[in-house]
Design a protein around this nucleic acid. Structure first.
Lengths: 195, 195
DNA sequence: GACGTTCCATACCGATCGGTATAGAACGGC
DNA sequence: GCCGTTCTATACCGATCGGTATGGAACGTC
């Protein structure tokens, strides 16, 4: 009962996600959000709570809708394919025409001012979650003989994500998909099992 | 003649550099700057003009004092040494105890809000200057037979700087110097001439 | 010691920040 | 038709943003 809302909350969240992606957490103002969503401030606060929870909801949606490739890549049978699929998946998301450039997480990782410290902590934590999951996957590969006995799974995981973060900077600076694809090919030469 | 200023402008600029390094352009407020410098706003504006020119002065000082290794690395005789010295130099600057974490340029590269567009353009431009200089160095190496005939100097330059940008994200997220050193070693396996 | 000059301290500017109080408009249930 | 509820619109909140006007204090010069 009561008056029905005149906008689609899901559409609005998608708009917020894209704005945060493009401009970062602190770079996106409430006015940016309400203008983009086409709603008023009370509607935004009534629906989403406040800016911080809205960002966290957008972050969750981002991981679900744009970072899903990461977790399915982990299920590839060979570590080398895991690594390649992850890098390619990142680059695809970062250079998709209809997406903002770069990576929402990396773009927001410099939520710099003291006021955004909590957001920064969350971002760093999300990166670590992915890095640890990848390291565990590489440990399994090492046990299976899929990775050499002298390789360090944690270092390899850090390397892959570091390249992904680097490509995010490149992509948000305007590098083309093909350029970054070639970059991934070069990076993969460092990975055990290169032809 | 006139009353002498009661603070050292060079010290103040160094403080500004460190604040911008740690918190980015928009994340650093005028109050942050004046508090850190121990001066008042009129002194800051009288000495440096405004926030944007202060940032550009800090950026210039940063390149001179912390990125000098880049240009001397270019003078190394072998391309592989050039690449390694550059990566090591970046990591050293990014993980120096007494420095803020990461890279001022990468941290500021997400000067996200619409207001900071000019700063963002400058930052992207500074990255490109380095990337092009490195590509030219690798072109020379290719001509000299120091790099294989089928290698692409531009792609190699982009790869090295992408890894450097990735390490900057890692470092500002708290990775240790040794961890990032190992990461550089892995990345160097992609570079032509690996043992 | 008066002077022009330069710097410092306080207090202020309009704009914007994230967030909210208030009042009215649009609905379902009775 | 009326009520309770939930939305929307306007107008506002204190705080902070980058930047400045004003007045006095500290100098070298004469």
């Amino acid at each position: 009962m009561g008056r029905p809302r005149e906008f689609d909350a899901d559409d609005a969240l998608q708009t917020a996600l894209e704005l945060f992606w493009r401009k970062g957490y602190e770079g996106t103002s409430i006015t940016d959000l309400t203008d983009g969503m086409g709603i008023t401030k009370p509607s935004l606060y009534g629906t989403f709570g406040n800016k911080e929870v809205l960002f966290r909801m957008a972050l969750q949606r981002y991981e679900q809708n744009y970072m899903a490739f990461f977790w399915s890549a982990l299920e590839q049978p060979k570590a080398r394919t895991v690594a390649f699929d992850i890098l390619r998946g990142f680059v695809n998301a970062q250079t998709e025409e209809c997406n903002p450039g770069g990576c929402l997480v990396v773009n927001a990782a410099r939520a710099c001012s003291d006021a955004a410290l909590e957001i920064h902590k969350t971002i760093v934590e999300r990166i670590e979650v992915g890095q640890k999951a990848l390291a565990r996957r590489f440990e399994r590969a090492k046990r299976e003989g899929d990775l050499p006995a002298d390789s360090d799974p944690e270092d390899l995981a850090r390397f892959i994500l570091t390249v992904a973060q680097g490509t995010a900077v490149q992509a948000s600076s305007g590098a083309s998909r093909e350029e970054v694809y070639r970059l991934v090919d070069i990076a993969m030469k460092s990975f055990p099992g290169a032809s």
